[in-house]
Design a protein around this nucleic acid. Structure first.
Lengths: 216, 216
DNA sequence: CCTACCGATCGGTAGG
DNA sequence: CCTACCGATCGGTAGG
């Protein structure tokens, strides 16, 4: 239905793609707040000023909306992470960039896609999971390189590298660090009061906890 | 409906409480697999051999079942953690005990309650959240003591204690460590193949990553 | 705890 | 993208 749409002139497609994007963004916000199962197609339609049947003009069913939200999250996350890493010169700066970017991806306004990926994963039909996992692997690979180098330098975690930082150790380190960061989705709240911890302060504390600082 | 049941002799109540427990256990398993919203009262009833209306003899609505699952998890978790801590003599042994116990609570067969608490939190009605939070605070306090001592001794995390291990630092350390552990609920799978990492191995790796080992 | 049932809602579709 | 609609299912209840 979306790959065999009628031929159209070069001037009218933008709107259709914008409506689709609006649905994805609104869905992400609603899924993030209420969960996928508790969110109604009518909720989604209403959020963008449509009637209840209209989202099915853009997606063939509700599950495809969920999949699109997750794909959008991985796409944005990948781009933001690559850009952040490119700005960092030292190994330590790279780690800080990874942490700060992940916090932004999880907590920035309008950036609810990855939180949905994490917390509504079980609602995604198995056929779709494979596709998403492949994209997610490329995303995780961005972390793997920096963490591998940090481990080898003895700068990550409580202990100096044991052997030669086996691939298994790097993976475990990534799961621990990303797990701690991703879990902030369950407890971190933004701007409740002026004095509260913002994402930069959260990044500081996180980096300090996981990475050796030796400012000596 | 449940607080004004008919007066009964001292010999027949046990069964009623057993049926209620069976509902809680079955619900926990179903919620863990499918999520609260995707689980039907009919699913729950069927899992314990009841008809669809019968769970409402034990709970006044579906949300009360969710609340009961979470309360059961916190109760069991508290007891298991206290027992594990009591067995540990050194500070390091206490940390290992906390980690291993939490992994058991999250991944042992028949122990799905806390995973439900973590992943279906947003489905719990706000009125109930307050009650659960109070119990959860006591649970978290069990971690706080050990982590505070570890931080002060410079044994936790990548850096030696900075100031005097402020309460904020202890809380942050707990959120990071428990976050990493709790997040295993999303990726760790039990006994897939003989050679796979079991909970003891997972504990080893976790402890080694977060706590200074100095076996010198 | 069962039988029988109900009102409400939900995902999705036909036909324009 | 709307109107109008449908079959299925869901949480919950009455009455025993």
């Amino acid at each position: 239905m979306s790959d065999t749409s009628a031929p159209r002139s070069l001037s009218d497609p933008p709107d259709e793609v914008n409506r689709r994007q609006a649905l994805i963004r609104a869905s992400a916000r609603l899924f993030r707040e209420q969960g996928y199962e508790a969110t109604t197609v009518r909720d989604i339609a209403g959020a963008v000023g449509m009637r209840s049947g209209s989202p099915f003009y853009h997606f063939k069913n509700k599950q495809e909306i969920l999949k699109a939200v997750m794909e959008e999250g991985l796409h944005q996350g990948y781009e933001r992470t690559v850009a952040a890493l490119a700005q960092a010169s030292t190994l330590q700066a790279q780690f800080r960039a990874l942490v700060r970017t992940q916090y932004g991806i999880l907590h920035d306004e309008g950036s609810e896609f990855i939180a949905v990926l994490l917390y509504d994963w079980r609602s995604l039909p198995p056929e779709y999971k494979q596709e998403i996992i492949e994209v997610k692997d490329r995303y995780d690979a961005l972390w793997q390189q920096t963490l591998q180098a940090l481990l080898q330098a003895g700068l990550l975690g409580a202990n100096a590298a044991h052997d030669a930082s086996a691939a298994e150790d790097v993976k475990m380190a990534r799961l621990m660090v990303m797990g701690a960061i991703n879990f902030t989705a369950t407890w971190y709240k933004k701007n409740p009061v002026p004095g509260h911890m913002d994402l930069d302060a959260l990044t500081d504390r996180t980096v300090r906890f996981f990475m050796r600082m030796d400012n000596a």
